Computed example of a mutant assay.
Amino acid sequence: MLTERREAILKLLIQEYIATASPVGSGKLARGSGMRVSAATVRNEMADLETDGYITRPHTSAGGIPADKGYRHYVETLEGLAEPSAQVREAVRQKMTEAKDVELWAKLAATVLSQLVRNMAVVTYPRAGEVRVRNIQLVSVHDDLALVVLVLQETQVHQQMLSLTDPATADDLVEVGNRLNAHLGGKDRLEIAAMQAELSPLEGKVAEVVIGVLEAEEQERMGEQFVDGLSHILSKPELAEGERAVGLVEALEGRRLLKSLIASLTDGPVTVVIGGENEDEALRPFSVVISPYGVPGEFRGAVAAIGPTRMEYAGTMGTAQYMSSLLTDLFAEVFRR
């Protein structure tokens, strides 16, 4: 738990670093904190923040740079999100509704979002329906090996081998399958993930297989991705060397980025994945702000902004959430015709 003073110093350091991309010194923090503390006191607090993993410093006398843990704390303690102004929101809505071809909405949304947040934006075209489990069957192959047969509600069948930690008979597997069908039947990936803590170890292993299949199926159904604003990423001083940007482009071309976005989706209106929290190594120099759009059971898509961890989080989160809400409204009219 951070003290009130340490919290204020961390917040100011992050805000200053977001604005300047330069390490922040204790003198600047002392002058800007409004707490009437000396630079020496701030240095001591910074040393504790570094020890606790909230910031990093090249050496003791250097300025501080936020670490992923510091950014995470900053995001979790934001007092509110910053949506675009009413004037901007109205202009964006008018621009979207004036587009004659609904297939242009997702592409236009990516362009608008990237311009508003000055980072890269990715928007997926919506696809009808959600991927849900219809039936799970476990077939004994060997004492320590089972075949998971997963039937989706659209009658698609997926099969995958599962190594068992402990030997299980065919009757054991039938019993586990029956319990899983009772608990997981009719549920989607997020609902199943939320229930994992309630499952036995074997049920949990099967659930992991099911979640993986559902995630892959979602990726296939999510369809085309529209990307804009790569030039914003390339203009950031953190990417001057270019190697990080190359990794991001490769992730885009290989659709690994789309897979990472889908894996990051939650039930919440907006999710932030910071630096090392990203599963894909190419995304670890970046933060991803993602907001799902759609109507449960009818259609689903995603809006995402990607930029360096030195991102203006409140504004980016608020803008992504606004764009997802707008796309939900627009596409709902089309899907319900």
Rank of each mutant, 00 (worst) to 15 (best):
E298M: 12
H142Q: 12
L327Q: 12
P23Q: 01
A182Y: 07
R5V: 03
V24H: 00
G212N: 03
D166C: 02
F331C: 09
V157L: 15
F299K: 02
D166Y: 05
L104D: 12
A99E: 15
R31Q: 13
A240Y: 07
M1N: 04
H232I: 09
E76A: 14
K11M: 04
L326F: 13
V289A: 05
A62S: 15
S291I: 01
A216N: 08
S140G: 13
L81R: 11
G32C: 13
V289I: 04
M311C: 10
M96D: 06
L13E: 01
M96N: 14
E279D: 12
S114W: 02
H73D: 13
P23S: 13
L29I: 14
A216K: 12
R132V: 05
I211E: 15
K187N: 08
V75D: 09
Q219R: 07
T51V: 06
G307A: 04
W105I: 08
E218P: 06
A320D: 12
Y71M: 03
I306K: 12
A194Y: 10
E215M: 10
E50Y: 11
A240G: 10
D143P: 05
S325A: 13
V206C: 03
E312T: 05
S33C: 15
D171N: 13
V289W: 03
A146I: 01
L173R: 07
I55Q: 02
A39H: 14
A8N: 08
P285T: 05
G186C: 04
V42S: 06
A197H: 14
A30K: 06
A40K: 02
G297N: 00
I274W: 00
V133M: 03
D101T: 01
T124I: 00
G268M: 09
T77D: 03
L147D: 08
V295C: 05
H183R: 14
Q156H: 05
H59L: 07
R57Q: 15
S38L: 01
V334K: 14
L330R: 06
R221D: 02
T56R: 13
R337G: 12
S26L: 04
L239I: 03
T124M: 02
